[in-house]
């Protein structure tokens, strides 16, 4: 039983760190701010949450476990809000989409 828990935790750790790596590669390769935001807000959140869950699985007392899960909940609540605010601010100021974009229904008609 203990071995199984340890193996699950190890797998979660490696998967989470791979997601973090994928998010940062996405940050590097994607063409503009808004597409980069997809990588950071999804794969990045997923990576950090998986590693916190690994900690919760590995922890042997309930206090640590519930705190780690509370951390996951906080992170899931705050990550979309912050990326949404950043996207809204950037669009309002006038950072435009990459030239390969196919449509922009938000652009004011003028």
């Amino acid at each position: 039983m203990n071995d199984v828990v340890t193996l699950i935790s190890a797998a979660l750790l490696v998967i989470g760190s791979v997601f973090a790596l994928v998010a940062s590669i996405g940050l590097l390769r994607l063409p503009d701010l808004y597409t980069r935001m997809h990588a950071a807000s999804k794969a990045g959140t997923m990576g950090a949450c998986l590693m916190l869950i690994a900690l919760a699985v590995q922890a042997n007392d309930v206090g640590t476990m519930s705190r780690a899960l509370a951390g996951v909940v906080f992170f899931l609540l705050t990550a979309p809000v912050s990326s949404h605010l950043l996207a809204k601010a950037a669009y309002a100021v006038g950072y435009r989409l990459a030239s390969i974009s196919v449509m922009d229904e938000m652009k004011p008609e003028d």
Binding site: A20, A40, M51, L52, A54, A68, F75, S82
Partner: peptide, 14 residues
């Protein structure tokens, strides 16, 4: 920088 925070949380967990 936002991404760095996520990575740092991962580091802390590990």
């Amino acid at each position: 920088l936002d991404m760095l925070v996520a990575i740092a949380i991962g580091f802390i967990a590990v």
